[in-house]
């Protein structure tokens, strides 16, 4: 599903994001990308969703070589990848329904389809009863669940979650991880970028550990090493 071959990404002032990283993530896998701050976790996520471009190497997502993806092709790529961020990125003036519908609206989906799909998505994340509420009327955990519902709107084969539990308490964090696991069980590849030791150890799934832009460990059923 995701392949990085000798990928290097350097920022200004020779600040290394990733250096000569080679990783292969198979379809249907649940992979945690862990590491301390500045280890290159977020760079990894940004390269996969084409928010950044690699200086060297090759990136393949879903069989599509996105190393030199053209600007106009990025929206098509993004519709195949669900993205969840730590800071939710919900629109405060839109209801939960409208926030999820927004992803389908910008993709040109019909109003009829949106009306049928959005309640289903909100049901998956357990918020079908609150679809008319606004983001500031629900908890942080619920907000993150709305973001996951929105990320699933295009039925992506890959879900990239960059620190999805970073702003949540442990109970809400557990719920979000359980939801991601459920999504993974339905066949979606999940790439979880996190520095939450508890969660990584609990998952007992594949763990790729990054340090200063290098892969220092890749365990099949790993633990948080650092």
């Amino acid at each position: 599903m995701v392949t990085l071959e000798h990928v290097t990404k350097t920022y200004q002032k020779k600040n290394i994001g990733l250096e000569d990283v080679s990783v292969h993530i198979a379809p249907g896998e649940f992979v945690s990308i862990v590491g301390q701050s500045g280890s290159g976790k977020t760079t990894f996520a940004k390269l996969v969703i084409a928010e950044e471009k690699a200086d060297r190497g090759k990136i393949i997502v879903g069989g599509w070589d996105i190393t030199h993806v053209r600007h106009h092709a990025i929206p098509t790529l993004r519709r195949q990848i669900g993205v969840v961020f730590q800071d939710f990125k919900l629109l405060p003036k839109k209801t939960l329904f409208e926030n999820v519908a927004f992803a389908l609206e910008v993709a040109g989906q019909s109003t009829k389809r949106i009306a049928s799909v959005v309640p289903q998505l909100l049901k998956i994340v357990g918020l079908e009863q609150k679809m008319d509420r606004f983001p500031d009327q629900i908890s942080g955990g619920e907000q993150q669940r709305v973001v996951i519902a929105r990320a699933l709107a295009h039925r992506p084969k890959l879900l990239v979650a960059d620190e999805p539990t970073g702003n949540l308490d442990s109970i809400n964090a557990q719920e979000i991880i359980a939801l991601l696991q459920k999504i993974n069980e339905f066949g979606t590849t999940v790439v979880l970028v996190t520095h939450n030791r508890e969660i990584v150890n609990m998952l007992k799934k594949r763990v790729i550990t990054l340090d200063h832009g290098h892969v220092i460990a890749d365990q099949r059923a790993g633990k948080y090493l650092l």
């Binding site: 929206p75 993004r78 519709r79």
Partner: peptide, 10 residues
């Protein structure tokens, strides 16, 4: 930013 994130065209 959100529009771009969820795949809105230019």
């Amino acid at each position: 930013g959100i529009m771009k994130l969820v795949g809105a065209s230019d």
